[in-house]
Design a protein around this nucleic acid. Structure first.
Lengths: 125, 125
DNA sequence: GGTATCGCTTTCCTTTCGGATACCGGTATA
DNA sequence: TATACCGGTATCCGAAAGGAAAGCGATACC
């Protein structure tokens, strides 16, 4: 809101060269973290508590180990989830949303609010 | 927030089969509207007022007419932008954010807020 | 007549995303 | 000995997103 207001002064003809497009970078960061075919479902699965690799995979049909592995790495890199290995046999690996990862919830909530209204508007209520 | 709280009761083992995943659909709708390589920049360009096709293209270097055309159609279909044709010569076509389209601003603002904090956290401030 | 502008569309090509399948070492179970 | 589970990795493929370049009808300008 105030974000888009902010640059009105500074954005002349070329949006790309100013503060203007730089401002979009954080927005793209946030979008990157949430978009993709499986990210939301995995995050959702983890909001219900610690989960093991196979457990997540079973809860999300169609999700292959390759994709799950990749997405979990992304979450780790972004410090949104943490990985814990226990030296049992067979080995146990647990994934968990970090407290920081849980700060995504209000954001997803906002997307849900707007998306719900939009759905009603477009599908003709 | 309350969104993710909501289904805690209803989500047993299979997230995919319940209310649980249905709840993610509106979130995906919202993400679809904002993600992609050019959407944000085009929306931003239109927040500064009516613009003509070529004018938008000039403001966003690298944007090809094919992509611009496609994205503008998407915005129209979603009733976020409107298209006005004037019978001048050569023909004049103007695009404009609808009042509804402007309701995206607070949402983008939220993404910006989270994304900025995230950027600081990850890049080590 | 030649060239330019506007608002696109069409075709072809590359790059990226994600799916299918097979496999790995280590351990348990029959 | 054979089979199964765990937490993945590696390889090959098809689909989808997006870029490059050309062209098009209408008009205007030189």
């Amino acid at each position: 809101m105030e974000v888009l207001e902010y640059d009105r002064r500074k954005c002349p003809n070329h949006l790309s060269t100013g503060e203007c497009t730089k401002m979009l970078l954080p927005v793209k960061d946030a979008l990157d973290i949430l978009s993709g075919k499986w990210k939301l479902q995995i995050i959702l699965a983890l909001t219900f508590g610690k989960k093991r690799f196979k457990q997540i995979q079973r809860e999300i049909p169609g999700l292959t180990p390759k994709m799950l592995s990749k997405e979990l790495k992304d979450l780790e890199i972004n410090e949104l989830a943490s990985r814990h290995v226990y030296d049992t046999s067979p080995v146990t690996v647990e994934y968990e949303l970090t407290p920081y990862g849980k700060t995504l919830k209000p954001l997803i909530g906002e997307l849900h609010k707007w998306g719900s209204k939009h759905r009603k508007k477009i599908t003709g209520k």
